[in-house]
Nucleic acid binder design. Structure first.
Lengths: 226, 226
DNA sequence: ATTATCTATAGATCTATAGATAATGC
DNA sequence: ATTATCTATAGATCTATAGATAATGC
């Protein structure tokens, strides 16, 4: 019996081992936090899912909260950065004449593509992000990581709608982000309501409609008179 | 010094006392759950907020979960019922020719008015409802209490948009409910983003824009070609 | 007599830390 | 030598129950 293909222990370097374990912990935490929230998950749960001892959580992270923050930080920069670039690119393409729909395509589609193409890990993060957005724990994280890209979008929308009040533009954005966060949350309710016709994980179907829908909404707020 | 106005112990009947205590517990739980979620609140916290002993929680409720459900049930029927009536009334008024915007005004404005006119208690419930909508704990509650009114809205929208596919109508509703749940959640983020220009508790400002915005969104999904 | 509230406590977690063990690193 | 992982455990909760006490009810 040839032994040549036997399980060669890959002899990982410490740096590799550390990186791998860290990623496994973050994956497990991301999955669990996305479903049960900060308070619905114990460090035990995370350790168990990874298959290591609870005390290892404290070796890699100060406490539960810093693990939670690390899960957020791991991907928040990527989604924020990609949308920032997309908005920059669009603003340049559009010269001085951006449209609401163009700006929303750059903002929304770029983000949705990340989840559509990113596999399970990114879909878990989507759900996690919605949790963060909906709970007081997350307020500071949202502000810190996403203010710049949102304010850039707002800036382009102002350019596209020069006769609109700032309030109308912010409230329009408020409706957009509400729907986007609800999308990321993937609650499964639309699946049951529609009897399976729509599924909350079908971000492609949402991407096909969302920017157009929201742009039309913005146009409906057109100032009357003068 | 006249004693006539001294603190006469109101000598409440047991039924009154029971009802009052129950309401105090539900109020405290509503407030706390709305902020921290099911897992972020202990029965101790609730009891402490009411000023009674923890064990009293178990006298009135089987366990934490049944307290959570009771908080939801207390007001869910009211909001659902009011919107049901408003939709019925609108469908009748409109004869066979309802509009998307008309249906959305009935659905959204009726609900928002409840919070606008209902004081702190209803604003807490709004936040609580958003929590329920966003977490797996709440899925079954949402289905049980709100399926009928949502399906009634969907029915009227189908009548208003006879050439639309069911998918488009459900996805349109999906965007509406996302924005509505985000409204109820009152995260405070729009306050900070807009530097105080908009505040997330200003449901009147939202009501003034939402039905129109969403109706325009629906119209943008118009099927192309034959 | 019945019911609202409290006291006392068991048993199960949960977080966090100190210190041991077993690997990789020169 | 250094670092990744585990063992053991302290201390703090948290839920839930049994049983006592203090009110209202006839």
């Amino acid at each position: 019996m040839p032994e040549s293909k036997a399980v060669k222990p890959p002899r990982r370097s410490k740096a590799e081992q550390r990186a791998e374990t860290l990623e496994q912990i973050l994956d497990a935490a991301e999955y669990l936090f996305s479903r049960h929230g900060l308070h619905g998950v114990t460090l035990r749960d995370v350790a168990q899912r990874v298959g290591v001892h609870t005390s290892l959580m404290h070796y890699y992270f100060d406490d539960k909260r810093s693990l939670f923050d690390a899960v957020f930080a791991r991907r928040a920069g990527i989604t924020s950065g990609r949308r920032m670039e997309a908005l920059d690119r669009y603003a340049q393409e559009a010269g001085g004449k951006p449209t609401v729909e163009g700006a929303l395509h750059a903002f929304l589609d770029t983000d949705l593509d990340l989840y559509i193409d990113g596999g399970d890990a990114w879909m878990n993060y989507a759900k996690f992000g919605a949790q963060v957005s909906n709970t007081p724990e997350g307020a500071e994280l949202m502000d810190r990581y996403f203010d710049p890209v949102v304010l850039k979008l707002i800036g382009i929308l102002k350019q596209a709608l020069p006769d609109y009040s700032e309030e109308d533009i912010f409230w329009g954005y408020f409706f957009v982000t509400g729907s986007l966060m609800h999308t990321l949350g993937q609650t499964g309710r639309i699946d049951r309501l529609s009897d399976g016709l729509c599924t909350s994980g079908d971000f492609a179907a949402i991407k096909a409609r969302m920017a157009r829908f929201m742009a039309a909404g913005f146009m409906s707020l057109k100032p009357t008179g003068s």
